[in-house]
């Protein structure tokens, strides 16, 4: 361990702002693209699900109509 205390670790020898800005920006951007990819996946699956449900409803309505 290069630092004696937690506050020293956060201070980064006076460069804390730049170091944490870099790591923070990196984490935010990567998490952002990860979460958005995950959400798109769920959305596509939901779309397919509702399409299947819709077709089933139409089929049922047609059968009842006959």
């Amino acid at each position: 361990m290069q630092f004696n205390s937690l506050s020293e670790f956060f201070a980064m020898g006076g460069y804390g702002f730049y170091v944490w800005l870099s790591y923070g920006a990196c984490a935010v951007i990567l998490l952002g693209i990860f979460i958005s990819s995950k959400r798109t996946h769920g959305k596509i699956l939901d779309d397919v699900k509702s399409q299947i449900a819709r077709e089933a409803r139409i089929k049922k309505a047609k059968e009842q109509g006959l």
Binding site: M12, G13, G14, Y15, Y18, V19, S22, Y23, C26
Partner: peptide
């Protein structure tokens, strides 16, 4: 560069 160089690990 002291501790500022630690940015290298993501840069």
């Amino acid at each position: 560069q002291k501790d500022s160089y630690r940015i290298i690990f993501i840069h």
